[in-house]
Design a protein around this nucleic acid. Structure first.
Lengths: 112, 112
DNA sequence: CCGTATCCCAAATGATACTG
DNA sequence: CAGTATCATTTGGGATACGG
């Protein structure tokens, strides 16, 4: 991993050698990027409500991975009851923009 | 499945409800799209040589799925030894173009 | 409220051998 | 050459219960 994401020159394209693309392919990840992008700042509970099929643990793991990748920022407020908010980093927003044309295409394609 | 690919209006984004996005997330699929896009027409053996980590059976399955999705066209020549060539359909090429900005971003991001 | 820890299950991929 | 069939294995994800 951590190799070249997509080397078009040598006739190959090793997208999966890229950690990010690997992460993107995991369940709910693109959804999460979209959801956070739309809300700008959003709490865990609300994210969960938008993805009722995802289990708490899976969602938590995905959010951790996105944070570790530097695409998501997690802010915790020491209140009672506790509050946590997520937002995209600059890189995360850039990703969101690159993702959009693809998702639009997918939606249109599916509707055929 | 076969639902809306990415519904941005209601604050959700159910990318995974889309069969195509689901397919795209499978191993080697984005690579396959890239490889075929670059070669225009390419034989099974050459695809395999570009993805040495993928097993024959997995590659075969992925190619079938891409064909079933209407993104890839398979042409078989009744020669001996047999020859098969793959190429993208129009939809497949459209996908490839939508994929490109994302993969470029991934490559740059990984290089950080 | 926002998770983590644990255990379990299903899906996805790999390895290999064989065939038209 | 271009796969298919079969079997083994890994990996990912779900359910649930509990903790700060």
């Amino acid at each position: 991993m951590s190799e070249i994401a997509c080397n078009l020159e040598d006739g190959g394209c090793y997208c999966l050698l890229s950690d990010v693309m690997d992460l993107l392919g995991r369940k709910y990840v693109m959804d999460l990027v979209c959801i956070v992008a739309i809300h700008e700042r959003v709490r865990f509970g609300e994210i969960e409500s938008h993805l009722p099929d995802a289990s708490t643990s899976t969602l938590s793991t995905r959010l951790d991975e996105l944070e570790a990748a530097g695409l998501l920022r997690r802010e915790q407020y020491d209140e009672i009851p506790p509050r946590v908010e997520y937002e995209l980093t600059e890189d995360g927003e850039e990703l969101g923009q690159r993702l959009e044309p693809l998702l639009e295409w997918a939606e249109a394609f599916e509707a055929e």
